[in-house]
Simulated scan of single mutants.
Amino acid sequence: MISATVETPNLDLFQVNQQLENAEASSVVEWSAETFSNGLIMSTSFGIQAAVMLHLVTRIMPNIPVIWVDTGYLPVETYKFAEQLTQRLELNLKVYQSPISPARMEATHGKLWEQNDVAAFDLYDRIRKVEPMQRALQELNAIAWLAGLRKNQTEHRQGLTRVEQQDGLYKIYPILDWNARDIYRYLTSHDLPYHPYFDRGYVSVGDWHSSRPVSADDDNERDTRFRGLKQECGLHLPQTAGEAQSLDSSSL
């Protein structure tokens, strides 16, 4: 079911971030629900610590649309973990995929993840992740997006504030200042599971071909993704005009 169009509020982000600077994560979610109502969505990757945000948010907004971009290249364990959490938390899950099948993409562009090239990774991300996410946001009439980004994950995320505006959409990060200990405490106190790959040494997991266990040489958890060549998959970066145009599936 597609939500009715909600008018986007004109927020003073400086004032809002001052107001929420020391707020508990649950209070940030409550503020988001009050401010954006049914124009609010959240995303999940069903990654290592996905249960934290899913539980935190759905305790306050049980029926919030949860967008999951399925690339078609996720590990078997991720699909099983997704099923487990969806049933346990009774998620209002919205699954989106690229209109270009994995087989067609490989026939047209080759196995982009094997090219050891940032441009190839970027094209992969636009096809398999960014286009489906942008389509989801449009179809669900989203005006605000809750995401589980944390400052200690990447250089880009270190500069984020609790509430941002990106490409006309408000983005809210309730656990932005959390560390690994905070994550562990929340999971254990609510008896929530980690992704099965955590026991294999993974601190972050995405597609099977572009994730690996953490090593002593890694500066942060995102170094274990994309062969260490890039830290962001594009979902949480502003789009240039050219990138936005390239999301037209006919041009991919």
Results as ranks from 00 to 15, higher is better:
Ala144Glu: 11
Ala51Gly: 10
Leu176Ala: 07
Gly72Tyr: 09
Gly242Ser: 06
Phe14Met: 02
Thr71Tyr: 05
Thr224Met: 04
Pro193Val: 08
Thr58Ala: 02
Arg128His: 05
Leu56Phe: 13
Gly72Arg: 10
Thr44Ile: 10
Gln165Ala: 04
Val28His: 08
Ile143Asn: 07
Glu24His: 11
Leu187Ala: 06
Gln84Pro: 00
Ala241Asp: 15
Arg126Ile: 01
Tyr197Asp: 10
Gly234Thr: 04
Ala120Cys: 02
Trp208Lys: 10
Ile172His: 06
Met133Pro: 03
Tyr73Leu: 12
Tyr194Glu: 07
Arg150Thr: 08
Met61Leu: 15
Leu229Gln: 13
Asp207Arg: 08
Gly201Ile: 09
Thr8Pro: 01
Asp219Pro: 00
Thr58Gln: 11
Leu74Asn: 06
Met61His: 09
Trp208Arg: 14
Trp145Leu: 11
Met53Arg: 03
Ala142Thr: 10
Leu20Asn: 06
Ser210Val: 15
Ala216Cys: 00
Asn179Asp: 15
Asp12Pro: 03
Met53Gln: 13
Ile172Ser: 11
Ser249Ile: 05
Asn92Tyr: 07
Pro99Glu: 14
Val16Tyr: 06
Phe121Gly: 04
Arg59Asn: 14
Val214Asn: 03
Leu169Gly: 05
Ser189Lys: 12
Trp68Tyr: 15
Arg225Pro: 02
Arg225Met: 15
Tyr186Met: 13
Phe14Gln: 13
Leu123Ser: 04
Leu40Ile: 11
Leu146Phe: 04
Gln138Trp: 02
Gln84Gly: 00
Ala50Met: 10
Asn22Met: 02
Val16Asn: 09
Met53Asp: 07
Arg185Pro: 00
Met61Val: 15
Arg227Met: 08
Ser249Pro: 10
Gln19Pro: 00
His236Lys: 03
Ala25Tyr: 00
Gln19Trp: 05
Thr8Ala: 07
Thr86Lys: 12
